[in-house]
Design a binder for these strands. Structure first.
Lengths: 157, 157
DNA sequence: CGCGAATACTTCGTACGCGAAGTATTCAGC
DNA sequence: GCTGAATACTTCGCGTACGAAGTATTCGCG
């Protein structure tokens, strides 16, 4: 009966591959950003702001899956470089909106690479069926992880 | 003809989900490590050394997909905490082997969580067919990314 | 043998990335 | 309308994470 160890090897291979795809895409994005004097996260922020318009710092944090304290630092450095501006909301003075400067907007236009671009490119080469299968299975996984995460949060109270 | 925008939305969803699964698994691993006074990478290193025995710093770097300079720092801190030892190879004096101390080995036994554990757990709930499909498609993606990466490296010379 | 290239690792500077604690502002309920 | 809880953001300390430059050692080849 090799089923168990086979299954385990398959799981390892899947985890290994996901980690590879993620880290490699990230590395290549970083490399592309570098060529215009940006870091990976900074490129992501610029593209988000260019696409969605001004965003509050919290919204930005959610979008790039980072803590507010992390994004504060990223915005600090981008502000120093004249790529973005901080603007207090008048309706809720706790909120800070981040806005692209002309320089920041121009830079966004200059860089055609999207975050995780390489990953997207390669995904686009999959057959229609493979794409659908992949999304279906991944969604299943995501749903279950969300369930587990919620359980842990609840249990800790 | 909505095919194009549909397809694009699907790609976005896939990328989004992969990023979610990866970052969430990482976050939860970090949390588990925290409970025994370790960081995420440190837990990973301890588990690797406990499983494979002494490893050179370079081997360790490859395994955790980080640069040597990063791992040097991680090992510095672990050595300071008495979890590992550095040992010069006698056959090649450039090489440094990293070895678990009894304290480090004990800690590894104490923590039952593997790196990316949550991801593994959830993967294990997939049907046999889904698992096979997922691995098949991901392998395809990985192969193509490897191809692209190799192309870029070659073209830059 | 001898010496330039390659390899293994370290050091340094900068940028994330996080959690805990702090500040300012708004909200909720009385 | 007052006050304690909640929310948005910042600050701080620490640990990655990387690339470039530096050191020590080994390899390759004439």
């Amino acid at each position: 009966m090799l089923q168990d160890s086979d299954a385990k090897a398959e799981l390892d291979a899947i985890v290994e591959t996901i980690v590879y795809l993620y880290t490699e895409s990230r590395r290549l994005t970083k490399q592309a950003a570098r060529e215009v004097g940006l870091t990976g996260p900074q490129l992501t922020v610029i593209k988000l702001l260019d696409t969605f318009g001004d965003l509050s710092l919290s919204t930005l944090s959610e979008r790039i899956r980072a803590q507010n304290s992390t994004v504060t630092g990223i915005i600090d450095r981008m502000e120093r470089e004249g790529l973005v501006l901080r603007e207090r909301s008048t309706s809720d003075r706790r909120v800070v909106y981040i806005r692209l400067t002309p320089k920041g907007r121009q830079l966004s236009k200059d860089v055609e690479v999207q975050p995780m671009e390489i990953f997207r490119d390669v995904l686009a080469t999959l057959s229609r069926d493979d794409t659908k299968d992949l999304l279906r299975i991944l969604s299943k996984l995501q749903k279950r992880v969300r369930g587990l995460v919620k359980d842990r949060e609840t249990e800790g109270r």
